[in-house]
């Protein structure tokens, strides 16, 4: 599951598509107005629903359209890692990335990196019936 700022990562994902870059198809993208909009509750809920990994992607540091939204997101991601650790889930399942709208390759690399990382950790113990439950 990924939470992407519309100004950067979301556009970068678009670009990756137009460039026909290959990346694992297992990522679900949620578009945010700014990465700073991400909430610890969104992150925890994704894990509760059984997602194996979550990443938040915002603009490059210093380039957030709302000035500090991405730094805020970083703080909340760090805090959410602690919340995961509390309950015994690997905090590595969660990460924050920064990129610009022009970085289609970086987006594809990010998805690949997270997929690799999670493959090593194995499926989330919270996954229901071996399949991730996606609520419509």
């Amino acid at each position: 599951m990924s939470f992407c700022c519309q100004f950067c990562a979301y556009s970068a994902a678009d670009l990756a598509g137009s460039l026909r870059l290959q990346y694992p198809p297992n990522v679900r993208i949620v578009r945010l107005l700014c990465s700073g909009k991400v909430d610890a509750l969104h992150i925890l809920n994704a894990f509760k629903e059984g997602w194996d990994g979550v990443f938040v992607a915002g603009c490059l540091e210093g380039e957030c359209h709302f000035l500090t939204g991405n730094l805020h997101a970083k703080q909340w991601v760090n805090y959410s890692k602690k919340l995961l650790k509390d309950i015994g889930l690997e905090p590595e399942r969660l990460e924050m990335f920064n990129m610009s709208a022009a970085m289609g390759t970086k987006f594809a690399d990010t998805v690949r990196e997270m997929t690799e990382r999670i493959k090593k950790l194995g499926p989330s113990p919270l996954r229901k019936g071996g399949k991730t439950v996606v609520k419509k």
Binding site: L44, K48, P125, L126
Partner: peptide, 14 residues
């Protein structure tokens, strides 16, 4: 309260 509840729900499921 929402965060703590979600955390506890996950911990008890684990």
């Amino acid at each position: 309260a929402g965060l703590l509840t979600t955390q506890l729900q996950m911990a008890f499921e684990l």
